[in-house]
Design a protein around this nucleic acid. Structure first.
Lengths: 194, 194, 194, 194
DNA sequence: GATGAATGAGTATTCATTCAT
DNA sequence: TATGAATGAATACTCATTCAT
């Protein structure tokens, strides 16, 4: 039952639903409060302001990706496998939560510069783990020893992000997870030492 | 034709400057009018509404990319060369116009879903030409015959886009054009038949 | 006809009516706009913000007092006469404008510290003229040569202000102007050299 | 009797401190509760509502003035002496409690019309004693037999009040008590029969 | 008595667009 | 064509008060 959840979580979850269904600019605080089943003022007992809700939404969900990735890095042995599992995980999480996918790929990007910078700071933790995998792969000889890590990271993340955004823009009409193996192949071909 | 009228151009150019310098959400119609040296009302003699200005900005600039790419497709012979020249051209154009880079990579993405869908429709012409190159490469045996064109397109465009966005977010502090060869290598490795 | 007045004046006059009839804290911008017969947004073409309206109201009306007093100082010869005419004028102006009296004596005093400081700065011009009269009277031997000007000013202004406030609090049920001669006598007795 | 309970006093004293330090409009109930060391809800066990706190503050402190004045009336013999001792007492009490002076002279005056009317009702007890002195002085021939008592009261109280307010507005930078003799002289000159 | 989490009404201000001149 | 004064809808946040514990 929803009311059993702590209010903080109720509000975060409500925000995702409201943003996904109404769009970023139509996600008024009062709408989020109503969806969460609390009074408008209650929001401000748990969040400093509206921006704080949005950052918390992103931070909260991003930590799922980051924690999974940390686990993957620990448990897989080859760098290529780590990368493959990362892509697969990224796709799986978003494919299983349509609301979240819309929010992260489309709506949250409409935020202003300040908020976007805070979102990017949170994203950085995830990208650092990606860098770890890439560097390890280069050191171990799995990936091209001379490649530019920053560019490789842009390729991996850019490809993943563009693939998912395209899927969301097409209203999630096809299976995202089925694309994972092909994306893995495309990316690995670009990175792996021959 | 309305594009020929000087005020139309004045307003388009003013919009880019105003958006780049103030950000998407601070680019009021009155500011654009002032920058263009016309009255607020005059804007509406040349554009249906504010959204129309923004779409026109994107459309106007995108046509530069599309025309260059059409020329490249015509003049280069191998698919790999076409792809390389496309990447190089994309980087060169944005590297030479700091305002335009900020507007297309950061500011215009803050627009709402409707506007972004219209922007994507314009982008589609450019991506269709990219598809042409990829398909031709597959047919000619230059690229993997079995790859998914839609994904390959996402990889190429996603990598280019993420690389440029990262550069803009880093306040264009390093040379973008010098990255072109490495990006070309990364992408071609992923696509080329071995 | 009201609409013949410039909008600035329409809004100032409307503000006085709305504040007098609804009280300071119930004088919403939208109410003032409605009373003035303009749209809410029009207010902001003529005033920076709500505080600016209130300051302008006070400043605008205070200048009536100040200008009259300057004229009185010029035309009367004895200091005692100047003081008498000042008191009489102060009473007459407020007695003739019930709304204004309520606004200056009761409502505007509910404003916050910042606004009250700005109001006091405006009031200072008026009190300086009072000081002039008092000092001149002392120099000419009309008033006690040894009295403390600051205190004398407090007595004159405090007596006037308290008398008027009491009258307003009693809902202006008796004639304020008829009190003038008695107030003049009381004050002059305190000041005049024997 | 509720006044005997320590929390009642704690809250009254806390209110004065909070209002003096934060200003009337920033003196939230929760701030007063915190300063008093009680929970927000506890306030409502001792006071009907916020207005009740403020009235109680004023009433509580005003009784000090009223009781002193009653003692003065009893112990002094001449009306002039009573008036002098009243002025002196009024100045002394406020000069010795900076917080109280700020609260009564500046902050509490920002309250709305209803609250100010209640404050005036409390003040009336004090002003009635002043009236007693004035009337007695007229009967005994010390003061002008024909003067208007209501106006004389406005002069006495208005002068005292304006003098103290000016002193508070000047951040209590000079000695208020040293002004007492001069104020006494000014006022007595206005009232005394010659 | 004492607590403090929860409530929800209320408002200044911006800016895209219009239209009389 | 060109102007720019006027419009008016739309929204985050505060804080006095309550009431279940």
């Amino acid at each position: 039952m929803k009311n059993d959840k702590p209010k903080y979580r109720q509000i975060i979850d409500a925000a995702i639903v409201v943003i996904a269904e109404n769009g970023y600019h139509q996600a008024q605080v009062s709408k989020i409060a109503k969806q969460a089943g609390v009074a408008d003022g209650t929001i401000y007992l748990y969040f400093k302001n509206k921006e704080d809700i949005l950052i918390s939404v992103f931070s909260d969900k991003m930590s799922v990706f980051t924690e999974s990735l940390q686990y993957i890095i620990k448990t897989e042995s080859s760098s290529a496998d780590k990368l493959c599992r990362m892509i697969e995980n990224h796709f799986t999480v978003l494919a299983s939560d349509a609301h979240l996918a819309v929010v992260t790929q489309l709506e949250l990007r409409q935020s202003n510069k300040v908020l976007r910078q805070k979102i990017n700071a949170i994203l950085k933790d995830y990208l650092k783990l990606l860098d770890e995998i890439l560097i390890e792969g280069m050191v171990k000889g799995e990936f091209h020893a001379t490649m530019d890590v920053r560019l490789a990271r842009s390729m991996v993340f850019g490809t993943i992000d563009e693939t998912i955004t395209t899927w969301v823009m097409n209203e999630q009409r096809y299976s995202l997870t089925e694309l994972a193996p092909k994306v893995q192949t495309l990316i690995l071909r670009g990175l792996q030492a021959t």
